[in-house]
Design a binder for these strands. Structure first.
Length: 824
RNA sequence: GCGGAAGUGGCGGAGCUGGCAGACGCGCUAGAUUCAGGUUCUAGUUCCUUCACGGGAGUGGGGGUUCAAAUCCCCCCUUCCGCACCA
């Protein structure tokens, strides 16, 4: 058994890292985003994530916190199904094997999880509660079913949520998504749009970047919804605008081709066929083609006009590809003079441009414009509002329109409801039943979980979930009337499973409820969450949404799940994120075998600050390995000193050399603590320890007398503190030395060292002497000398007088304990 | 286009509220140890120049503030990330 296995076994057997529920000790909940058990062997990208969390957990443990550091598996999802189809194993089997492999790997690198809280989202004892949560959402009107054109990934053969579409492609498989109209379940996340946005302000422990991304995604805008009337038919046609100050500049209207009113307006006219063809074409186009700014604006007149309520003007109505049905009212007022998109469209189709805002300094000639004027300016051609600055015109016109009853001030969000149905097998079944008599009937709570049948035929068919083909699953009785009924056959989006797992850890084995309120309120919110930036919107937004809903329902007493968020930089290899599919992974096992887990951990931590992307190279690994060797070779011959290390030392009573050593120790301890606490900059913390060890090697020990005695005592403390400082980073070696030195219990039950604040300053200071800002000399003086004294010494310095060459100083600047600059 | 972050030796990276640029590590050079390789140890290692002492330049580029700028201000360049027809 290796040294590492010995301690890994020890940690497991003694339950050292088991978190204690409802303890009086102050809790600290540190959490990594749980992984998908893909079965790939642990590579450096994974390692980095888990090691960061492990260092934090161990450090907090040594500070006496009741630390919870759990691990689990985001185990539902497509890759299991795809792999299963490919290798002809059941997804459950495949997933289970992968979990076993990954668990062992995490243990190999020495991560200190409380495995008793392990959760696996594909197990019935977990997804039972995922289904229960769905029912709660349904009860509260936060889950609803609707027929809608949804994003469809042709490769995954399922619909996806807006959040899962990145650059018009499926976030998982990168296939461009298309549209498909289906009956789908949605969660009403839009009800929480305002709170999700507002509460971002309180998340001071989150990176600004993530907050900005969520803010953009939620996309709140203030504007006016104003009703135009179709001249020929009298139909109302509301449009939404954030630039009501440009209302007098409207020269045409644009409607999304799929807009229901369009059908009515063109029915039986020469335009009907053309509109249908156009709408059909757009439906086939990918999201990317449709929404890219660079794609050409296309559209045409549909033979009807709209009347602008503010001036009674009738303007032509167009359909065009650049207007989206889903946003606002699906129709816009076009102001080519002041909106670039409208401008391009107007130029393309020869539509009039009417200026209603002019720049302050100069006029604006519609005929000469080459682009829209979108900045603020002064109102012109705007009736009674002429002459107002547009910043004042906007609210004034909005009020006027509201007063007249032509429209209302409105707030809109880009955020849409969360589409949660998936037409795939490997997910939590949506717990509802369809009855011809009673309609949609929720599965009663007592009947949960709705178990996923163990089929072997889970190939997607495209139209419906594989579950639809399983008669025994589909056919059931209505819980209300007892008549024949059918089960819902779609499964839930896996992001639902991961939107509450952090709560389950607080009470992972609870068979009666999702979690006890008491335990959840004890452990949460998570004190430190660590994960990749790729979830800035998806998982992190959904989890915040769930937390707010559960807060509203009274199940928890907090409404944000993660107090502090740390987004670690990814590990790259050859410029790309390390991943199995790209074939650029560097596996942990061979490196662990060759150098040991502590060295691999050390390298990951030392190579770069953790938030930074790390281009992998194992160049530096020798350095860490050597460092561990140097520590060992320093401690081994001095083991007796370590064994008799004092608990504390009175610095005031020390002789000179031991005192210097004591000061150096305190400085190092302070640096290590500061680096860990302020910024998780483990790289500089380790560097400080290396520097200190180098310094120890360079020391000349006093030969005899009190100085020698003092020195030995300080050295004992030095070695003890080095081990304690090293423990979170290189836990196996730290434990081993600790034991050798007579430690009766784990080093992680010791307190992390605290520096003696009275002895962090050197007794002497090296003063840099500059002449005209150039370094000329250095002198060592007792610390705390007055400016005058230092000045005097500086002027006496040989190299300084030489540089001065007899010239009189014009000005002398003294920076205490640091520098003197003589200006001539 | 908008928003954000960044740009420092051959490499990864340090530089706190302006105060010795290059901590720490890799790599490299020389020497010691060793039969040898490895290990370990010692010294050196930003660039140019000089036998050397020394001198000069230097933190993406250009300006500025200051006794003093990687750090503050202005302009520009590059890279990465996010948003992007949202009316």
């Amino acid at each position: 058994m290796t040294l590492e296995q010995k301690w890994q076994k020890y940690w497991e057997e003694t339950g050292l890292f088991k978190a204690e529920d409802l303890s009086n000790t102050k809790k600290y909940y540190v959490l990594m985003m749980f992984p998908y058990p893909s079965g790939s062997k642990l590579h450096m990208g994974h390692c980095k994530n888990y090691v960061i969390g492990d260092v934090i957990a161990r450090y907090k443990k040594m500070q006496g916190f009741n630390v919870m550091h759990p691990m689990g598996w985001d185990a539902f999802g497509l890759p299991a199904e795809n792999a299963a189809i490919k290798f002809n194993v059941h997804p459950a089997e495949w997933t289970k094997n992968n979990i076993a492999v990954m668990t062992q790997q995490l243990k190999n690198i020495g991560i200190c999880y409380d495995w008793s809280r392990e959760v696996t989202t594909c197990e019935p004892d977990y997804y039972r509660w995922t289904q229960w949560l769905f029912l709660k959402f349904l009860e509260k009107g936060l889950a609803y079913k609707k027929k809608k054109e949804a994003n469809w990934c042709p490769k995954c053969m399922t619909v996806t949520a807006n959040e899962e579409v990145i650059d018009g492609a499926c976030w998982r498989c990168k296939t461009p998504v298309t549209k498909k109209e289906l009956e789908q379940w949605f969660f009403k996340i839009t009800d929480y749009a305002d709170r999700l946005l507002e509460d971002l302000k309180g998340l001071s422990g989150w990176p600004e970047k993530v907050k900005v991304m969520q803010e953009n995604w939620i996309g709140k805008s203030f504007g006016v919804e104003i009703k135009f009337k179709v001249k020929e038919t009298g139909d109302e046609l509301p449009v939404y605008t954030t630039r009501i100050d440009t209302i007098f500049g409207v020269t045409y209207l644009v409607i999304a081709p799929e807009h229901p009113l369009v059908k009515k307006l063109v029915k039986g006219t020469e335009f009907e066929a053309k509109v249908n063809e156009f709408a059909g074409k757009l439906k086939m186009a990918t999201e990317m083609d449709r929404t890219s700014e660079t794609s050409k604006k296309e559209g045409f007149f549909i033979g009807k006009h709209a009347v602008n309520p503010v001036n009674g003007e009738a303007v032509p109505i167009f359909v065009a590809n650049y207007v989206l049905l889903e946003y606002g009212t699906g129709a816009v007022m076009a102001v080519p003079a002041h909106d670039q998109r409208d401008f391009l469209f107007a130029k393309e189709y020869g539509l009039p441009v009417k200026v209603v805002i002019e720049p302050k300094e100069s006029g604006l000639d519609a005929k000469e414009m080459e682009e829209a004027f979108v900045a603020q300016g002064a109102q012109v051609n705007s009736g009674q509002f002429d002459g107002l600055p547009s910043a004042k015109g906007l609210p004034a016109i909005a009020d006027w329109i509201a007063e007249k009853g032509w429209g209302t001030k409105t707030v809109k969000f880009k955020l849409r409801d969360w589409l949660i149905s998936r037409q795939r097998y490997w997910g939590a079944p949506i717990p509802v039943i369809y009855c011809d008599k009673c309609g949609i009937v929720p599965v009663p709570e007592k009947d949960l979980p709705v178990k996923l049948p163990h089929t072997v035929n889970f190939k997607p068919t495209g139209a419906a979930s594989p579950l639809a083909a399983i008669k025994e699953f589909v056919e059931t009785t209505c819980p209300k009337c007892g008549g024949e009924a059918r089960r819902e056959t779609d499964t839930m989006n896996t992001f639902i499973c991961s939107s509450w797992y952090f709560l389950r850890y607080a009470d992972a084995k609870n068979a009666n409820e999702a979690f006890s309120k008491e335990k959840a309120n004890y452990w949460l919110p998570v004190d430190q969450y660590v994960g990749g930036i790729e979830h800035a919107i998806l998982h992190l937004l959904y989890s915040r949404f769930f937390t707010k809903v559960l807060f509203d329902l009274g199940y928890i007493a907090f409404n944000e799940p993660f107090t502090n968020l740390f987004t670690q930089g990814m590990v790259l290899k050859d410029g790309a994120v390390m991943s199995k599919s790209k074939g650029n992974v560097v596996l942990a096992d061979p490196l662990i075998e060759k150098y040991g887990a502590d060295t691999v951990r050390g390298l990951i931590l030392f190579a770069a600050p953790p938030e930074k992307e790390l281009e992998w190279s194992d160049q530096g690994i020798e350095g860490i390995h050597r460092f561990l060797g140097r520590v060992q070779r320093f401690i081994d011959p001095r083991m007796e000193l370590l064994k008799s290390a004092p608990a504390a030392i009175d610095g005031a009573k020390l002789e000179k050399e031991p005192k210097n050593l004591y000061v150096a120790l305190n400085k190092t301890v302070k640096k290590v603590r500061d680096d860990i606490e302020n910024s998780f900059h483990f790289n500089t913390a380790i560097a400080a320890l290396m520097e200190f060890v180098n310094y120890l090697y360079s020391l000349k020990e006093p030969e005899a007398g009190k100085a020698k005695q003092d020195f030995d005592r300080v050295m004992g403390l030095v070695m003890k503190d080095i081990l304690l400082c090293l423990a979170p980073f290189m836990p196996h070696n730290a434990e081993e030395y600790w034991e050798k030195a007579g430690g009766k219990e784990s080093i992680f039950l010791q307190s992390f060292p605290v520096h003696d604040a009275a002895f962090i300053a050197d007794e002497s200071a090296v003063i840099v002497l500059q002449v005209n800002g150039k370094v000329k000399s250095k002198i060592t003086v007792p610390a705390g000398l007055s400016d005058g004294q230092v000045k005097e010494l500086a002027l006496k310095d040989g190299k300084v007088t030489e540089a001065l060459g007899g010239k009189m100083p014009k000005n002398i600047i003294v920076v205490k304990n640091k520098l003197v600059n003589i200006v001539v």
